[in-house]
Write a protein that binds this DNA or RNA. Structure first.
Lengths: 186, 186
DNA sequence: TTAAGGGGAGACCAATCGGTCTACTCTATG
DNA sequence: CATAGAGTAGACCGATTGGTCTCCCCTTAA
């Protein structure tokens, strides 16, 4: 593993578990055994490292989620598979995402305001919603695809938040049941 | 306004907008014009001040929410009023809660791990869920009151998260529509 | 064999962190 | 009037922050 990747992985783990401002550069160096000069050779600043971490997490998460959804089929099937994937995540059955500690982008977003980080977090969420919407065209629902995608996103965000702070590990199952209702023919 | 209250209000505003670790004691003092000695006369540490801030926000939020729900009626009416209240919050129509910047407890929780703060945040969420559940006994639904309260909480958390990071200010309306479906007779 | 150069270890820097302390003022009560 | 308590200003403390720089080793090529 290259030094930059090593730093990104370690930084993500520490940021995710302890918060971004709470973790100093020296802690990351100590954890990885990398020299300070090497870090600043590859990244201009802590902020630059953080941006790389956000990009890394965005790719890892999106790759995992899209793979899970596509594997389940198309349309409604893919969307409902999202909640099964979340359930696995909450129960720490997804190694590549590390032990569940909530949504990294929610946490990162909360530590900054009017900052590049906020834009990156918002974009990550928008990408997910857009992917959901892409799987919804032509589905039976009372809602238009765009509104339906937003509602699904509300359920997704709610499940993550509820599982994290309240420790309700079944939140994904509840959210899935509500998602099913959105597709009801009536 | 007493000095402690002044400090708590200012600290909350700064923590809420910028994150907790990102705001130093000196910044709070500068903003309030209070002397450092006075702060440490009333609070043992920054952590103690933070705890007071969390208690303050918990009370403010719960008082506002319960009042809004009770004013709307009982049972299902009260629960659905929750989402109307959220909608007002998202649109900055609730002065006492300050301009909407997401859930303070979610943000605070994300900046700590294995810390008193986490317990306080979890308790705040539990209090809300318990209050919701108390309004649900005897309501018509496919779900038991406890499960129904958890599902409503998922919708509530999702609406807040979605409104905050994605900037979807209509998230409360979407969540309300899904909540209505939970009470469907079928 | 030797010279050159890139990267690693970590000493070092100014700034800031949370927190303490001294010296002084104001106000309210006995 | 005297005294006590709450307040202010801000110097000061050690620790830690993000970031720079120097020294040295180790590889590589002539």
């Amino acid at each position: 593993m290259t030094k930059p990747d090593l730093l990104i992985h370690a930084a993500f783990k520490l940021f995710y578990e302890n918060g971004i401002h709470a973790v100093g550069i020296n802690r990351i160096l100590q954890e990885t055994g990398v020299a300070k000069k090497t870090l600043y050779h590859h990244f201009a600043s802590k902020e630059a490292l953080l941006e790389a971490v956000l990009v890394y997490r965005d790719q890892t998460f999106m790759d995992w989620l899209t793979a899970r959804m596509m594997a389940a089929g198309e349309g409604k099937l893919a969307v409902l598979a999202l909640f099964d994937a979340l359930d696995d995540w909450f129960h720490d059955r997804v190694e590549v995402l590390l032990p569940f500690k909530g949504c990294f982008f929610m946490k990162a977003n909360g530590e900054f305001s009017d900052h590049i980080v906020n834009g990156l977090c918002q974009r990550h969420k928008q990408n997910i919603t857009a992917f959901i919407q892409a799987n919804l065209v032509g589905q039976v629902s009372k809602l238009a695809p765009a509104d339906l995608a937003q509602s699904i996103s509300v359920l997704k965000e709610g499940a993550i938040a509820q599982a994290y702070v309240a420790g309700d590990l079944n939140a994904a199952k509840r959210a899935k049941a509500m998602a099913v209702a959105l597709f009801a023919e009536e």
